[in-house]
Design a protein around this nucleic acid. Structure first.
Lengths: 193, 193
DNA sequence: CCTACCGATCGGTAGG
DNA sequence: CCTACCGATCGGTAGG
């Protein structure tokens, strides 16, 4: 109901399809039935709008993917499901925009780097292995890009199988809900918003 | 020396940094010291310019990466080196533009899909395993995106190690130059241009 | 290949 | 939040 939130949700959705540069103030105004200056006045510059959209997307991502109390494999399953459900219509907002801004210095890239660092450190904490965390992240991103590019969900199964082969299950805890590191994960969650 | 080639080379370079939508006719004109209509007249539409840039990038990629007579691991090493050398200043043209157009139907996406299908089938032929080929492709793309985003070449070493652990060396042929499947690879090369 | 131009859209501002 | 406007740039055209 708050219009700022509605603008940013739509901006994040558009960015997942057309990139953050494809998010224009005029387009948002038309799609939301507002005036251009009405949209613009919430942010003051396009860069602030982009940064706010990144923040909004981080909020959505955290809510949809980063649940407290999961093991590495659970987190991956949630990530794949989040991608498959098209929480963002063009696939994972962060996979798209990180690639878009990888070679463009500025505050938007910095924000995307920071978010990725937090995500990577969460993966590393849960897998207990930086190399494995890197490979897991690579496989998740590839599943997302392939599924969208080819409009073919089989990439998710492919990656699911690869991950199950690589990530060791914590023995004897497959059915448990609470885990010893619940609190550290919960703090990680809040730091990702 | 031919101006069409110079335009397309510059277009491909820009696209690796700013995406194919960041390639504008006015920008090309300024950077190449031409008039806008001089640039435009070679293509007739922006879509044709984008498609021609994809074709040009495929030519460059094939020249730099897809050499005849390599095993899977050799091809991966060449790919990582091509990314690391910044043949395209923003990293691999195809990793960038495929992500950019994954959710945007049209001729540009179709061209990028076709190129990727050929690349994936080459990887599958050399590895002899579709699942492994998928994972190799995922790791290469991740190395490229990470190295550019963090301006940190260590991702290449990380992926090199992962690939060496996964891709079996053809026993007894480590030092050979010619291989039995030279001709099939050579035909694959020409079909990628 | 050029100059000169077109309507549309861009990010952003003034003033209310 | 709005209308009305700004200069710059977009893809593209006419004519040479």
């Amino acid at each position: 109901m708050d219009s700022r939130g509605a603008i940013l949700l739509r901006a994040a959705e558009i960015a997942s399809v057309d990139g953050l540069e494809g998010v224009t103030i005029g387009r948002l105004a038309i799609e939301l039935g507002m005036s251009k200056s009405g949209v613009f006045s919430h942010f003051g510059s396009k860069e602030e709008l982009q940064l706010s959209a990144v923040h909004k997307a981080a909020e959505i991502f955290t809510r949809e993917v980063v649940i407290a109390g999961g093991a590495a494999l659970d987190l991956c399953e949630r990530w794949l499901d989040y991608s498959k459900r098209r929480v963002f219509p063009g696939g994972c907002f962060f996979v798209v925009t990180r690639s878009e801004f990888a070679a463009r210095p500025g505050r938007v890239r910095d924000a995307l780097m920071l978010f990725h660092l937090r995500w990577a450190s969460l993966l590393e904490r849960l897998t207990g292995d930086a190399q494995l965390a890197f490979e897991v992240d690579a496989l998740l991103a590839a599943a997302d890009r392939f599924a969208v590019l080819y409009d073919d969900a089989s990439a998710y199964e492919r990656v699911r199988l690869a991950l199950r082969a690589r990530i060791a299950m914590p023995t004897g805890t497959e059915m448990s809900v609470a885990r010893p590191n619940d609190s550290s994960i919960a703090s990680q969650v809040s730091s990702m918003i």
